[in-house]
């Protein structure tokens, strides 16, 4: 099992980094969110089976920019994270306004007061 590259960046560097990766021919594999002491977002990219992760830590109510105009299919991941965790992702290309999932509970995966 190889070592995994996790590169920590700040939320305003995100678009520049993603644009850079897109021009390098990377494929977006997944966006993962973990809610513990704030939100921890991991953007996983893949090129020639090499996995590269960008890691961003933001506060529970901080905003983050959408990458869906660079990777159009990111809209599904971002809508999912927005709905399940309540992360404020701004300007998603196709914004479902919290109606992608039919769930009765609002932001079920969010943990309040863990800070």
């Amino acid at each position: 099992m190889g070592q995994q590259t996790i590169k920590a960046i700040s939320s305003n560097e995100l678009l520049a980094e993603v644009l850079h990766l897109k021009n390098d021919g990377y494929r977006l594999v997944a966006i993962t969110c973990t809610c513990k002491d704030g939100m921890e977002l991991s953007y996983s990219f893949d090129k020639n089976y090499e996995l590269l992760n960008l890691r961003i830590n933001i506060g529970l109510d901080e905003d983050i920019a959408s990458i869906s105009f660079l990777y159009p299919f990111a809209f599904l991941y971002e809508n999912e994270i927005k709905e399940l965790f309540g992360v404020n992702i701004k300007d998603i290309a196709v914004d479902f306004n919290n109606s992608l999932y039919k769930i009765p509970v609002k932001t079920p995966f969010r943990k309040e007061g863990t800070e």
């Binding site: 109606s99 992608l100 999932y101 039919k102 769930i103 079920p108 995966f109």
Partner: peptide, 8 residues
């Protein structure tokens, strides 16, 4: 539109 069988 998905989420009809979201089980968490």
């Amino acid at each position: 539109r998905i989420g009809y069988i979201h089980r968490g």
